[in-house]
Design a protein around this nucleic acid. Sequence first.
DNA 1: CGTGTAAGGAATTCTGACACG
DNA 2: CGTGTAAGGAATTCTGACACG
Lengths: 106, 106
Amino acid sequence: MEDESYKERKVITIGVVSELTGLTERQIRYYEDRKLIFPERSARGNRKYSFADVERLIDIANKREDGVTTKEIKQEMESKSRKEDRKIRKQMLRGQINARFGVQKD
Amino acid sequence: MEDESYKERKVITIGVVSELTGLTERQIRYYEDRKLIFPERSARGNRKYSFADVERLIDIANKREDGVTTKEIKQEMESKSRKEDRKIRKQMLRGQINARFGVQKD
DNA sequence: CGTGTAAGGAATTCTGACACG
DNA sequence: CGTGTAAGGAATTCTGACACG
C-alpha cells in the first residue's frame, strides 16, 4: 500500500488532463456528463482529476476510437464493478470464516 | 518500482499546491527563486508541480517555522544530495565488481 | 450521439515593483 | 530576508446554447 495514494488524489486541472490524454476539454466534460468520470471540484468550481481518472480517460478514448459508445462503456464499467463487489464480498466472507475456524495467528 | 511514478510527474498547478501545503503562492514562488523547488512550465508558462514537490514544500514550511533560513535549507539539501551521490556511486561500483567476479546469474 | 464553437463572465496565474524590517 | 499587496494583462475554466448529423 502507498503512503498517500498519489494515484487517487484529485489534484489535476482539466487543461493538464487534456494535455495528458490528448482529449479536448469538451470531450472530458462530456464523459463526465455521461457518468464515465467523476472529478472533484475546487472551492470555486474547477474540476480536479486524479492520475487514475487520467488513465480511465485514456481507456475511454481507446474504446471510443473502436466505435464503442459511451453507453456501452458505462455498462462495461458497471459489469466490472459488480464483479469486483462479488470478489470483495467473497474475500470478506473467507476472512470471517478464518477468524472463527481457521489457523491460529502467531 | 512504479509503472509511471505518479509521485514525480509535474502536473499540479500552483493554486492546488497552495491548498495542499497551506503556503501562499507568493511563498511558493519565492522558494523557487531561492532554488529550493523546481517546477516545470506549461506551454504558456504556468508552473506545474509534482507530489514530491508538494512534500518538499511541506518540509520547507516546517523548517521555516523553526526559523531555518532558505539559505540553510538549501545547504542541507546540497549536503544530502552529495551523500546520495556517494551512496549511488558505491552501489554502482559494487555492481561492476559483481558483474566481473560475483555470483553467476541463473 | 458525440463533438465543435462562439459568448460572457469569473477566477487563475504571471511578472515586476514597492513596502516593511 | 521573507512575505504581503496592488497592478495590468494574458490564459484558464465554467455554463448553457446552437450546430451538425
